[in-house]
Nucleic acid binder design. Structure first.
Lengths: 216, 216
DNA sequence: ATATTAATTTAGGCATGACTAAATAATAAT
DNA sequence: ATTATTATTTAGTCATGCCTAAATTAATAT
């Protein structure tokens, strides 16, 4: 059984792979808040054990085996986030950190019970897809709000969940899952957008816009 | 913040103190499934840090500080057991092991939410008292079923929770919390008892009887 | 092409928390 | 009282997973 550290490495690598071309030692180190030197050591271990492929100075990739492990943990994380919101009435901005710990100690039995009580949900409270029992996960190929064109009317499908501040801010200007956003104007100067959400008009900064994934 | 190991030492010492005159190194080692030599080392640390008083060759006791920590963990453990039964529909014989892990990672916030959802329960699913937020715990001075007199009609108040088998067996002969047991006869030979629970008559072995705490 | 800078890896350490084997202390038995 | 037994402690190891400092490799700029 993989240790908590191993699980965190695999999860982070898997998630970084989705949004970066190369998952370098340094990138991974930053993501894990661990020194690059330490990462090198662990990457060697995990490669030897068949969880990763590592081309020195180039980057790492999870193998099939590594991916399976990563998805198991992500499934537990997202199910637990859902449970925190639905059953324990946590708000969406406080659950990520809670789930970071529980994902590692959640038993199979527990996973099943929670999945059952929640009625087999397919997305978590931030709209991220929950990996299924069989190891599959719905592919996400949404664009970010930052990429949406002027005049478009889009739907909020996913919001990045790492930062409570971001989520609080998003809530405060009316952004939540499945809300529609009309892009009234994009400012050339810095990429800010003037948008209409419901009946209110606000400005969305480029940084916020890059954390929000939308579809049509 | 105490490590998981430290929390387990403190909890076990506290619980052993309640039912043994001296908590010796060996006893503690057995309870924790750790070698006596290792226990000696940790006991030294914890004494130095003010969690324990240790008289070499005599035994250990928690200090006030140690007791406070122990009760915090026991509160989390018992609240979580209650939650597993009430909200996730686990049966009472499967929850102890689950809770052994979660007690260490449960945040204050989580503790509060669960306490709230459960309506501030005062006992766990095995009848053990849940330590309160302020660090107090209801004193348990019940007798064991084994000590009850012939002809007595007693009420099941607590059942030891460490062994799933014990709990399953107790359930199977009709023993659960708040059930009344009439002691029809005590066998001199081995201490077995012939009892009536509801309308059924059964034999309770001395070993089982010692794991069941009753009041009148 | 070479020098500078940045990324990566190697080498050596450290804390935690376990282990075994050997030594010592306490207890019980003759 | 001495011996045998049992409990406890000491000493020395080990695995995990992190660290820093130094060395190496790669990438970039002149």
């Amino acid at each position: 059984m993989p240790s908590i550290s191993v699980e965190n490495y695999l999860k982070n690598i898997y998630e970084l792979e989705a949004r970066e071309k190369r998952v370098t030692t340094t990138l991974l180190a930053e993501s894990l808040n661990i020194s690059p030197a330490s990462v090198t050591g662990m990457v060697k271990n995990l490669s030897r054990k068949g969880f990763l492929r590592h081309v020195p100075y180039k980057g790492v990739q999870v193998t099939e085996k590594g991916k399976r492990s990563a998805l198991k943990i992500i499934r537990k994380h997202r199910l637990w986030e859902m449970f925190l919101v639905e059953v324990l009435h946590f708000s969406w901005d406080t659950i990520h950190q809670e789930a970071e710990e529980f994902e590692h100690i959640m038993s199979e039995r527990m996973e099943e019970k929670i999945d059952e009580v929640l009625g087999h949900p397919i997305v978590d409270p931030h709209g991220a897809p929950i990996p299924q029992k069989n190891g599959t996960i719905k592919k996400m190929d949404f664009e970010t709000l930052a990429e949406a064109k002027e005049g478009a009317n889009v739907c909020v499908l996913t919001v990045k969940d790492e930062s409570p501040e971001l989520l609080q801010y998003a809530s405060s200007i009316g952004i939540s899952l499945n809300k529609r956003i009309f892009i009234k104007q994009k400012i050339k100067f810095d990429g800010s957008m003037i948008v209409r959400i419901g009946s209110k008009e606000t400005v969305v900064s480029p940084m916020l816009a890059q954390s929000i994934f939308v579809g049509s």
